[in-house]
Design a binder for these strands. Structure first.
Lengths: 137, 137
DNA sequence: GCTTGCCCTAGAGTTCACTTTATAGTTTAT
DNA sequence: ATAAACTATAAAGTGAACTCTAGGGCAAGC
């Protein structure tokens, strides 16, 4: 598979794919060269890019990803180290989810206030008072 | 309150605070100048910075934040526009939470595999097979 | 009155994750 | 055979959100 085909399949640009390779996120399990020096991608490249996207979408940096993916490949780190990383990442995600829940709370309050403001400005004003009395801006 | 004190209270650097001001996230409700031109921050500055952190932690850009905070202050946008923004943001957060759930799934699989690898390499190998048969890397 | 430490501005530098550009070789269609 | 469409490399540019530096002013202690 040539680079443009892969790019289309993955919804990336060819530049991005070459960039990932340069950053060490793809190795010869994913890309090889044809006699004309064109890159030729294996099916594994697709899976790798999917994995990159997945991790990236939850806030892994490419540097962090490189670490994990290299662990995945070679045995640079011990199993225990990887298990630790996974546990840490799980905690991170869980606390991020909690933050999101808090934020949803805040947004719901804002929504309630703004809706009230349209229907009953008087009551909205009252709401603002009690809000300010408790905590945030 | 002088800048260093605020920075310490908020866990930011003085550079970051001045940067936020330059970006228009703080106004004269939050900062004024003393006769010597030193910045003097009100208590409201603390609430404002908390709010900035809160929104930022769930992926709002400073530009976006500026919009909302200005709405919050002046009535640059209509109530309906703000309500729309809030609704959109809520959706964003909800789908982000789903992504996080998926990621937790993946991490749990990885953890299971790595744990098995330590206790029963044979079974770990089998697990890898069924995994590869289904989908991801 | 001098040192130390905090304050100011303006602007340059940094990191991340791309994105674009310049230049050139290869393949394919007409 | 030539144009178009694709590939390659190397390197510069971008935007976001800081972060740091240079060069200077004020303030408090000895």
């Amino acid at each position: 598979m040539k680079i443009q085909e892969l790019a289309d399949k993955m919804g990336l640009t060819i530049h991005t794919i070459r960039f990932y390779e340069k950053e060490g996120l793809l190795d010869d399990r994913h890309v090889r060269r044809e006699s004309n020096n064109y890159r030729n991608y294996s099916e594994e490249a697709i899976e790798r890019l999917k994995l990159i996207k997945k991790f990236q979408s939850i806030g892994c940096s490419l540097a962090e990803l490189k670490e994990v993916l290299q662990d995945h490949d070679s045995n640079a780190h011990t199993n225990l180290q990887i298990i630790d990383w996974i546990r840490g990442k799980k905690k991170e995600i869980e606390s991020k989810k909690e933050e999101y829940d808090q934020m949803l709370d805040t947004l719901n309050k804002m929504l309630k206030y703004r809706t009230l403001l349209m229907n009953d400005p008087q009551k909205a004003q009252e709401m603002l008072m009690t809000w300010h009395a408790s905590s945030s801006d």
